[in-house]
Write a protein that binds this DNA or RNA. Structure first.
Ligand SMILES: Nc1nc2c(ncn2[C@H]2C[C@H](O)[C@@H](COP(=O)(O)OP(=O)(O)OP(=O)(O)O)O2)c(=O)[nH]1
Ligand SMILES: [Mg+2]
Ligand SMILES: [Mg+2]
Ligand SMILES: [Zn+2]
Length: 582
DNA sequence: GCCGTTTTCGGCCCGACTGTTTTCAGTCG
């Protein structure tokens, strides 16, 4: 039982308790525990065995024992009992905008509505109007909510939302720039989360006229709410946008509030409340009339003797403690990236020739480029036979002479990890290469233990320099294959093997939530573009975002080093493992 | 249910917007 599943169960418990009408703080405790578990930076099974769960803030004796039950038996009797009283479809009903636990309960108890389909029928039959608290507006809003639920995604990839947010900001600046003293993306998008539920934007303006300007944006399909300081809309493509408008003097407080995360805000506010501060989106107050003025977010945190916390770290995952100790490290920046590994060419499924990819890397200022086409067992991608790989190697040798002094081309392969954990070529071929990325591209549905063993064996192979996309996930499309990530990280550590952070915005794999664990076990990262065309290098940005979310510093990442250090490091890995295996 | 440097009870972040409730509960951020 992994932490995602455990977190999901506690989230559902909180929803079930809401429906039951249980104590609000108890409900919050479960929801909070769910968030804390999903952020837990380590192996939850180990922590359970060591009896360390209840040491984690937000996990007490009761929830700790429930986690233990889940880890040990795979079930939770308390949850199963709770679920019996409520139909499964209640969870989807709760996802509808405008429908919370109270109304859902009424619909279920009074009209027997058990899921969205039931609700749709009841709406069409105008049955809701007979209920107390349900009027014409509620009916039309729920009808609209069902449409949105059916037609639109719940979350979007970071780059889609980033693009859309940029368009909105450009529009606002163009249409009403003089009214705007500050404008910034906030919410999960500012925190660089890999997927976002909506676009949050904060505006500082002296004039409320800016709201009118926003509402004239031509891509707005639906206005959900429209207040004095807050507007929520849905775009034609289904993306939701929240706009928050505040007077210029309140901007920093509003930006901080709206950046979140919710957990971060709650933690900061409750902690500082004990020290006599009140924090909201309009200010920091020591006493009611004594607003503390700050010029920027650095000042904001400094009020509480905290180090500035970069937005990427504001997930309520221990950042406040570290900021108090001034232990937040200098995070990696995109300018620290000096070269790239994991580049495909027209030798296999890349769209550009080898030389074009090299030229592009050179233009982008990279000092080295590690070429990795697909291996023989990847026929879908025209995987290279040993002979074909030899040709590519010779080609790289020629290009290295041609580009000497400009860029170094490293010879690599993205080798499939076969079902038995072997790599795709013999040692003779592999030893001609500078480095090898080993990735799983087949048989995703193996049992967890088998998949873990398969990957562990590949890591132990002396020629494996780094492990490619650890879980094979495609965000919002394909779930990760089952694998014991902590066991894999331990093996990477033991065999000094590097882990890829695949920068493709659909992958971002290794997940940033596991990066802290990897780094704490001295596993080095490589932020790889997995480029298949010239544009493919640009995704490095997303990889760096994810790395920052995982508290990564420059020195934790292979491709922040110069070519000589890189060559040295990858050689050392191979030698270390060759020695270890004899 | 969790938590404690005002501790083992009595608090728990704080506010905006909407609809139908004539005074605020529900939902959401
Ligand atoms: N203090 C406080 N702030 C909140 C609360 N809920 C949301 N916020 C703030 C922090 C959030 O980052 C910000 C935007 O809310 P969203 O619901 O859009 O969440 P966020 O953008 O973090 O994630 P998302 O990807 O949109 O689901 O508003 C809350 O309950 N209390
Ligand atoms: Mg958001
Ligand atoms: Mg929002
Ligand atoms: Zn690849």
């Amino acid at each position: 039982m992994n932490k995602e599943k455990i977190a999901e169960i506690f989230e559902k418990i909180s929803e079930l308790l809401e429906i039951k009408g249980d104590n609000l703080f108890k409900i919050r405790a479960y929801l909070n525990a769910s968030r804390v578990i999903s952020q837990f930076p380590g192996n939850i099974e180990d922590a359970v065995l060591k009896g360390e769960m209840s040491k984690i803030p937000g996990i007490g004796k009761d929830i700790a024992s429930k986690i233990e039950e889940l880890v040990k038996t795979g079930r939770l009797i308390y949850y199963e009992e709770l679920k019996k009283s409520v139909p499964e479809g209640i969870f989807e009903l709760l996802k509808l905008r405008g429908l919370g636990p109270k109304k859902t309960k009424i619909l279920y108890e009074k009209l027997g509505i058990k899921n969205i389909a039931d609700l749709k029928t009841a709406l069409e039959d105008k049955k809701l109007l007979y209920l107390d608290g349900f009027g014409e507006k509620t009916v039309s809003n729920l009808t609209e909510s069902i449409k949105e639920y059916n037609n639109f995604k719940e979350r979007y990839l970071y780059p889609e939302a980033q693009l859309e947010a940029g368009l909105i900001i450009s529009y606002l600046l163009e249409a009403a720039g003089s009214l705007i003293s500050n404008i910034e993306i906030a919410g999960s998008l500012r925190r660089k989360l890999e997927t976002v539920g909506d676009i949050d934007i904060v505006i500082a303006s002296k004039s409320s006229a800016i709201a009118e300007v926003f509402l004239k944006y031509d891509k707005i399909a639906h206005i959900e709410s429209n207040g004095d300081t807050k507007i929520s809309i849905v775009l034609e493509n289904g993306m939701r946008v929240d706009l928050r408008i505040v007077p210029p003097e309140d901007y920093i407080y509003a930006l901080h509030h709206f950046t979140g995360s919710k957990l971060h805000n709650e933690e900061l506010r409750s902690r500082e409340k004990k020290h006599g501060y009140k924090i909201n989106e309009y200010g920091i107050y020591k006493t009611e009339y004594n607003k503390i003025i700050v010029a920027d977010e650095k000042d904001f945190y400094n009020v509480f003797n905290m180090q500035f916390i970069p937005p990427e770290l504001r997930e309520g995952a221990g950042e406040i403690e570290e900021a108090l100790k001034h232990d937040i490290p200098e995070l990696i920046n995109i300018k620290d990236i000096r070269g790239v590994f994991h580049v495909h060419t027209s030798y296999t499924d890349g769209k550009e020739s080898l030389e074009e990819m090299v030229k592009t890397a050179l233009e982008l200022g990279f000092e080295y480029i590690g070429i990795t086409d697909h291996s023989v067992s990847a026929p879908y991608a025209h995987g290279l036979s040993a002979d074909e790989l030899n040709s590519e190697i010779e080609h790289i040798d020629r290009l290295n002479k041609q580009y000497e002094g400009k860029i170094t081309i490293l010879k690599g392969i993205e080798s499939d990890i076969l079902e038995n954990g072997d790599l795709d070529y013999g040692n003779e071929t592999l030893s001609k290469l500078d480095f090898v990325i080993a990735s799983v591209h087949s048989r995703f549905n193996m049992h967890k233990e088998d998949m873990t063993a398969r990957i562990m064996k590949a890591i132990k192979n002396p020629y494996t320099t780094m492990l490619g996309h650890l879980t094979g996930r495609l965000l919002l499309e394909r779930k990760e294959y089952e694998v014991n990530i902590s066991a894999v990280i331990d093996t990477l550590s033991e065999y000094k093997t590097i882990v890829e952070l695949n920068a493709n915005p659909k992958r971002l794999d290794i997940d940033w939530r596991y990066i802290k664990e990897a780094i704490s076990k001295s596993v080095m990262l490589s932020i790889n573009p997995d480029a298949h065309n010239k544009k493919g290098f640009d995704v490095i940005e997303y990889g760096v975002n994810a790395a920052r979310k995982g508290w990564t510093t420059k020195n934790d990442v292979l491709n922040t080093y110069g070519i000589n250090e890189v060559l040295n490091k990858i050689k050392t890995i191979r030698e270390y493992k060759l020695n270890k295996s004899v």
